[in-house]
Structures are given as C-alpha cells and as structure tokens.
Design a protein around this nucleic acid. Structure first.
Lengths: 127, 127
DNA sequence: ACTAGTGTTATATCTTTCTATAACACTATA
DNA sequence: TATAGTGTTATAGAAAGATATAACACTAGT
C-alpha cells in the first residue's frame, strides 16, 4: 500500500481498515490479520499499526482479544452508520472544495458526470 | 483560518492561496499580502508562510520581487490549467473513495445530488 | 509444561513540521 | 540618506510521527 506523505500513516491505516469494513471485505465479527502481519503487509512498524488499531478500538469498531486477535465489531448498525458518515464527509469535502473554486452546483454535477462518463469509456477500451 | 492538524500547515496555506487565485480573489499579477501580514492573518510563523510561498514560486504561480512583494503570475493559462487540475483531482479522489466503499456510479451521483438538494433547502430556510 | 501465535508496551533515535527570534537584503519615498 | 515596507535566511528548540528493537502478557494446542 502506498501512503500520502502529507498525512500521518497511522491515520491512513485507520481509514484503510474502515474502508475494508464498510466494503464488507472485513465482515462483522471477522478476525483481522495479526498486527505483526499487518505491519509486514503495509511495510510499517508494529507500533504504527497498533496506534491505528488503538483508536479504532476506542471508537468501538474493533474488539481486541488479548492473545487471540482483533475482531471487527458485531454491530451492523455501527458499520452502516460509518458508511453513511464517510460518504457524507467525502461529498461534503468535495462540494466545499469545488464551491471554493467558484463552481456552481450545476457545474459540479456536470463535472462529476463527465468524469464518470470518461472513466467508463476508458474501462471499455481496457476490457 | 482553521487548519486540519493531520496535514502540514504550509501545505494547507499553499492550497488556500491556490484556491483564492483560481477563484479570482487574487487576480493575475496582483500583489499578495506581505508575508508578515499573511503570518498574522493566518496566526502562523513567517517561516511557515515562506515555505508555502517558496513552493508556489518554484512552481511558477507566484513571482517574487525582493523588497516589493509577491505577485500572482500573469499567465492566465497557467491559472486555468490549475483550476482544471484541482477540480479533476478532487473529483477523482471522491470517486476513488466512494468506489472503495462499493458504491456504484449511479449511487455516487445520486448521493451527490441528494446532498446538493438538501443543502439548497437548508439555504432557503436560512435566508 | 512447552511452544507458537497473538496483543501490548517501552525505549531510544531519527525526521519533519512549526515556532520564536533575529538578522540581512532590497525598494520606494520623504 | 534615513526610514518604512517588503522578501529572505538562519538558528535553536519543541512537538508529532515513525522506526528498530525488545520485552511482557495472554491463549490455544501439543
């Protein structure tokens, strides 16, 4: 995994894991890879992984079991809420940015549609 | 101005100034506020401002004149390109994030429209 | 009991960012 | 030629983030 050197790595790991949980790649109650394994996979120090997990545990998304592993919460509602929160936050950020660039609502939607359209075309060519 | 403590301040200042240039609040060839003034306005150290400006100068968006001030580039094309770059980058990021959350293209557009719609309603109530 | 696999914590060190403070260099104008 | 306004650079110290390395604590299976 490649990190953005403008943002703390532990923070990016946190978001990465949240994404995997929301996307269902890490299901409810599922055991996460061992911290040392995660550290190897992400080419990062154990303490850095631990820092990310620590915050996720404090926020209740992960339940640690000493000696056994870390497990995704069983709370489906919590994950669903997280998905909605992340979605809204991202959209809010984008809207704020583009609005600051003086794009109108219509222009914003148009730009996004154009981007997705072009992306689709590119996909067609690749496949 | 409030900063995100997850991203270097000098980097946020850079983006802030780019936004103002793209939005036309800082016109072509216009003189920027003095570095010390910017530092006061942003509640930040002069060196931090200077670090942001240094990169913008290296990238050719700002032309410094020792003893006189810093001036926005005269190159309209450069600013137009910047606007397009920023727009595309933001949209690309959003799309990548939401796609990672397993939202479909249609869902992405729908969520954005909903957000803008609700935002408009809120505006109506406020005004 | 031992061992392998796991989470947890600690220490020392390095790098980046930011700060306060100060000085230096140049321009324009009174 | 002063002086005020501007950019530029340097130094020393603080704080946050990462790293390598090591040790400790618990669980499960042999």
């Amino acid at each position: 995994m490649q990190f953005d050197d403008k943002v703390p790595i532990y923070y990016q790991i946190k978001n990465y894991l949240y994404h995997r949980m929301v996307a269902g790649e890490l299901g409810l109650g599922e055991k996460l890879p061992a911290v040392r394994q995660l550290a190897v996979d992400l080419t990062v120090n154990v303490n850095t992984v631990q820092r990310a997990l620590r915050e996720m545990i404090d926020e209740g998304y992960i339940a640690p079991q000493r000696g056994r592993g870390n497990f995704v919460t069983q709370d489906a509602t919590k994950i669903a809420t997280l998905k909605q929160q992340l979605t809204t936050t991202y959209i809010q950020d984008l809207y704020g940015q583009l609005h600051a660039l003086k794009l109108t609502d219509a222009e914003i939607i148009a730009e996004i549609k154009t981007y997705i359209q072009q992306r689709g075309d590119a996909d067609d060519q690749r496949n």
